[in-house]
């Protein structure tokens, strides 16, 4: 967050000058925002941010995306159709690294700047890339888990496991790798198990129960997205008794409820609202020929039962409460 705010603020400042000076054309700008899937709270939050930016920057946006994150072909089709319509710029959260490279290059070649959010593509023919560093998020998850274990048992020792939502997804793999590498800093903690949940909450629940049957002395669990987090939370709630520490990615409403109930001990919170907001601002700026920074880290934070009431997290945990000050950020 520290490194991000000034850069974005300066870019915003520069751009708002441009926008003001060219307000006549800016009103007619049209920016498609293409997310991975329209069906999750995370991407809906991206849209919320995008809408706010559209209002602030005076551009028209179109909210697009496939129904499922796994539908790569659908997103490619959406990209192809969008390029044909020659928008001002495109905001894209690519579902897959390499399959989307071709369309991103095609858009750039057609003179349409592409602002990537959340995930990378296999080409550098894009205007700017705003993302959470998932690897760093995983590392923070490891630290938070170790801290929780230490708080509960007095020492950072014991057996832990992690739940992967889907295999072969770049952002999830980065989180898992970050978690595993982060755990190396705690030699007393051993990672004993990993289960894949097919992005199915019920399977996340089942896997959690089975992990705990297999390792009765488990002290910690890491869930790499909201679906696994809620599934694991439901399992711990159902099982009752002495519960291991649970750290989960994202800030779905139910995850926040579980955090308040002390079932989840920490949430690794990204800033999807800011990705949407800044993505559209950048798109508008790029449409006016502004030069953009190539890479922006929108940051991750750790929210725990003891700090979630702090005002700086309010907008992250509930995007409807999000209010951006004059210098953006918190």
């Amino acid at each position: 967050m520290k490194k991000f705010t000034p850069i974005l603020a300066s870019a915003t400042l520069a751009m708002s000058l441009v926008a003001t000076s060219m307000s006549a054309t800016a009103a007619e700008s049209y920016v498609p925002v293409i997310v991975k899937a329209t069906t999750s709270e995370y991407w809906q939050t991206v849209f919320l941010g995008a809408r706010a930016a559209a209002k602030d920057a005076g551009v028209r946006i179109e909210e697009l995306g496939a129904a499922a994150e796994s539908d790569i072909a659908e997103q490619i089709a959406i990209m192809e159709n969008t390029i044909t319509r020659q928008p001002t710029a495109i905001v894209l959260a690519p579902t897959a690294t390499d399959p989307l490279s071709g369309t991103v290059e095609a858009a750039t070649a057609a003179g349409i700047p592409v602002i990537l959010i959340d995930s990378a593509v296999g080409t550098d023919a894009y205007a700017s890339f705003l993302s959470t560093n998932n690897y760093v998020g995983g590392q923070k998850g490891a630290e938070a888990l170790a801290q929780c274990i230490k708080d509960k048992t007095g020492k950072a020792e014991g057996k832990v496991a992690y739940l992967t939502s889907l295999a072969g997804v770049e952002s999830l793999t980065s989180r898992d790798n970050g978690f595993l590498d982060g755990m190396k800093a705690f030699p007393g903690i051993e990672v004993v198990d990993n289960r894949i949940g097919n992005n199915d909450m019920a399977q996340g629940l089942t896997n959690t129960l089975d992990i705990m049957s297999r390792t009765p002395d488990l002290v910690g669990l890491f869930a790499d997205n909201a679906i696994m987090g809620i599934g694991a939370g439901a399992a711990l709630d159902e099982r009752g008794g002495n519960k291991p520490c649970l750290i989960a990615f994202d800030a779905d409403e139910q995850e926040v409820n579980l955090l308040k109930d002390n079932i989840i001990d920490g949430l690794i919170v990204q800033d999807p609202y800011m990705m949407g907001y800044a993505g559209v601002w950048f798109a508008a700026a790029a449409g006016h020929g502004a030069r953009l920074p190539k890479e922006i880290d929108t940051g991750v934070m750790v929210v725990t039962p003891s700090n979630y009431k702090e005002s700086k997290f309010a907008g992250l945990l509930d995007p409807k409460k999000r209010q951006l000050g004059s210098f953006v950020g918190e």
């Binding site: 909450m201 019920a202 809620i230 599934g231």
Partner: peptide, 15 residues
Amino acid sequence: LLVSRLSVGTPTAAM
């Protein structure tokens, strides 16, 4: 029953 068990209704459940 699934919602009762998970304490949350999800449109992507039972895939």
